[in-house]
Design a protein around this nucleic acid. Structure first.
Lengths: 310, 310
DNA sequence: ATGAAAGCGCTAACAC
DNA sequence: GTGTTAGCGCTTTCAT
């Protein structure tokens, strides 16, 4: 026995066959207490650790979930991934994380790698510009769950975008703002962006160029915070000269120095439902068409928004 | 052929043996252009995708790197993990991320799971209180690299803690501060914390209780930012009444509203060296005792520190 | 209750 | 240059 001990080493050591060892390790029934004891002893003595690779190869299914995220450095996604990992671990799954930086080619490469690893399913948090990648996954029947965004082709759990943007616009309208701008960045998921922008227009906002606006709705908190920074560096005060509302609800936004008014997403629930849905698909427990879960966003009013010309 | 096509299906389809197929897929030399062409055609037609599980089982080594992090929601680590994933992907490795929230039991459970998956190596970014886990890994000969911290038992790349803290304390001393406090949180790696605190004392700081201090050195930027927040909510102004310096250099600290004076770590280099060292161990390219790489931290002076009693 | 044997998809000698 | 074969470590019938 060179290298790590295998199930065969345990079998020899305990004087039973490897199938018996396999049974006790898997906790199968129908093993005499005597062999059970001896096997367990041998496992401990040898420091045996089951080889998940071999197990998954014969079982034809792995216990790893792929997580595809656009920008892990954005604390909203950092936290979301952290929560996803926690929930995945709870049901016995390992998490393979891929960061795409919003590039379609990287996204494709990462997904291909995950597929070669035969991940049991994939949680997509942000997409690159084109969503072609999803078609491939759907065509191959890979369980996929979109988390914190939505897509009709697969299970998804997100916040009601329209409701969220409407909340932001209404808030601004009530404060007397008329010229409102929409600010985004390349790192924001394409579809999410489009949905938010459309609703932005429908909600009654009169789309204004950034330099003429008295208020702006940002695609996410990071964009909002950076916008405030550049606005202020350019001499425009927030919220006195211009109001800003973000989207996501990152923890840092609550700092009194930032005081970001924002539309908050319930990350914990997003993660919990995302993993649950994915798990159900993986287990084949549900056979329905794609399920869309829309959670309620919440407007958190702080100090980056104020009445116009106060 | 039910389910995904295997190397055998490709072999049949192209009229060669599976070893030939294996050769062209691995890009081995000594395959006639003719078979090469036919195999490639079959691969495309069948939509064949190599099974990494099978490959890794026979090769006795995987191409996945485990990343153990304390708090992925902390943007410093979010970014670091993102960079590690990028570098790992560049050398053909997949990344399995585990978040421990600083709990020793979770850390142990995550590491155990990674080991069952037979990860090729592990990058540890933060430790729980006890560092017992590392001993196990070292004993088993698992390649490990500690990133953004240090540990004499394994390869590690971090910033010179003493130098960093000294930089912070000197800065404060020069500004006329005498009563300086050290602030930390449970999420900060134990050893890191200890090292920083010791140096803090040696650097000439007269350790003062938080409510008597005119300046404070925080264990990391998040602690610093939250501290500033609670200080200001309690009516103490920063930097007028109390100066604060952080550690890490997260992007958000540069916002003019925060303007955090901090000791910055070079994340990109940390990630690059971390993966490189780990890779070298995995490949068995280096057989030396643990290597300790100490990078230079950089004091970034912004607006949370000021002369005492100005 | 337990063991023997086949095989998951692949690589790597080793023959031809 | 190409095919045959023997495993990698495990699960799972199927006998006994």
């Amino acid at each position: 026995m060179s290298g790590r001990p295998t199930i065969l080493d345990v079998a020899e050591r305990s004087g039973v066959s490897k199938s018996t060892v396999s049974s006790v390790i898997r906790g199968a029934v129908g093993v005499s207490p005597a062999s059970q004891r001896r096997v367990l002893a041998a496992v401990a003595e040898l420091g045996y650790r089951p080889n998940a690779l071999a197990r998954q190869l014969v079982l034809q299914r792995t216990s790893t979930i792929g997580v595809v995220v656009g920008d892990l450095a954005n604390p909203f996604y950092g936290e979301l991934v952290k929560l996803l990992e926690r929930h995945a671990h709870e049901i016995g799954f390992t998490t393979a994380v891929s960061n795409t930086d919003g590039h379609a080619d990287r996204e494709a490469a990462r997904i291909e790698a995950l597929l070669e690893q035969r991940v049991a399913g994939i949680a997509m948090l942000q997409f690159s510009g084109d969503r072609a990648a999803l078609d491939g996954l759907v065509a191959e029947g890979i369980p996929v769950a979109v988390v914190s965004s939505t897509d009709p082709r697969v299970d998804s759990v997100g916040v009601d975008e329209r409701r969220g943007v409407a909340l932001a616009v209404e808030h601004l309208l009530q404060l007397g703002h008329e010229r409102i701008a929409y600010a985004t960045s390349p790192l924001v998921d394409g579809r999410t962006n489009r949905a938010r922008y459309e609703t932005f227009l429908r909600a009654g906002a009169t789309d204004a160029p950034l330099d003429e606006a008295t208020a702006v709705v940002a695609a996410n908190d990071i964009v909002a915070i950076e916008l405030i920074d550049s606005l202020e560096r350019a001499g425009r005060r927030v919220p006195d000269d211009v109001s800003v509302v973000g989207f996501d609800g990152i923890a840092l936004g609550a700092l009194s120095r930032i005081g970001l008014t924002t539309v908050a997403q319930p990350s914990e629930q997003l993660a919990a439902h995302g993993i649950r849905m994915l798990h159900e698909r993986i287990e084949g427990a549900v056979d329905e068409p794609p399920r869309q879960l829309l959670l309620e966003p919440k407007l958190v009013v702080r100090t980056t928004t104020a009445r116009k010309d106060r």
